[in-house]
């Protein structure tokens, strides 16, 4: 089938403003949008710039705004996207070139969530920290995050207020807040209980609709909020 691929392109050395470029391509219905981007880059215009690593929905490098919604280019198939496909860089973050965005700010916010296990105590048997399946279940959903930034850059509050820590950082705070082995529970709650933290969530659910891993992001944010209320944090 023939598809029309529209890409929002921007080269900071040549263009003042981003512009659309249209490519007519031959594609199989089972092709991914990423395959179309490869077709353009390899056979039409080698200057097309985008990120991708594993190309199998695991690394989270190729999140972009496809047909008006954040998705992974490597997971979205042509048969679902239709004959007219538009691809844009993620919103709310600076565009470096074409579909490549600057993720520095995203990582700064991720770091603010303390996304690592904090525990300096020696385990009881000296070897491993045990956890019941029920305790593991508490953060099962948020442990699936691949840091693709699809949720944060789909959030209308983040678009207009870049100080908001964003759904992705809260998801990763949730992953450790609800981990029974972690000892920095209080510290993380204190960080997220901030005017630019969980209190800025307006339950719009764009994050839930955007997440390629199917994480219920809004639920995670509300659970962190509830934990903050119970802990009596500011």
């Amino acid at each position: 089938m023939e598809v029309q691929l529209r890409i929002r392109r921007y080269n900071p050395e040549l263009d003042d403003e981003p512009h659309w470029e249209v490519y007519a391509l031959e594609a199989e219905p089972s092709d991914r949008v990423l395959d179309l981007l490869h077709q353009v880059k390899w056979y039409r215009d080698g200057t097309l710039t985008f990120r991708r690593s594993c190309a199998h929905g695991v690394c989270g490098s190729d999140a972009m705004l496809i047909n008006g919604r954040n998705r992974l280019a490597c997971e979205y198939l042509v048969k679902d996207a239709g004959r007219k496909i538009s691809v844009e860089p993620l919103r709310g973050v600076p565009v470096v070139k074409d579909l490549l965005v600057d993720m520095e700010d995203f990582w700064a916010k991720y770091r603010a969530a303390m996304p690592y296990l904090v525990n300096d105590e020696i385990p009881e048997d000296g070897k491993e920290r045990r956890q019941s399946p029920a305790d593991r279940e508490l953060y099962e959903d948020t442990s699936r995050c691949i840091l693709c930034a699809a949720c944060t850059t789909a959030c209308p509050v983040f678009w207009t207020n870049p100080d908001y820590v964003g759904p992705a950082a809260i998801v990763n705070a949730h992953r450790f807040i609800f981990d029974s082995r972690d000892t920095a529970h209080e510290e993380r709650l204190e960080l997220m209980a901030d005017a630019d933290g969980v209190w800025r969530c307006r339950t719009v659910f764009n994050c839930v609709e955007a997440c390629p891993r199917g994480i219920n992001v809004t639920r995670a944010i509300l659970e962190v909020t509830q934990e903050i209320k119970q802990a009596g944090r500011a």
């Binding site: 916010k109 603010a112 920095a184």
Partner: peptide, 28 residues
Amino acid sequence: TRLRTIYLSGKNPSRAARVRPENPGFER
């Protein structure tokens, strides 16, 4: 806000200087 201070410092929050939150308790 405290979070903003942490993004700007570029450090891990456990290492960043502990700052008081803006208007503690107000948002809650």
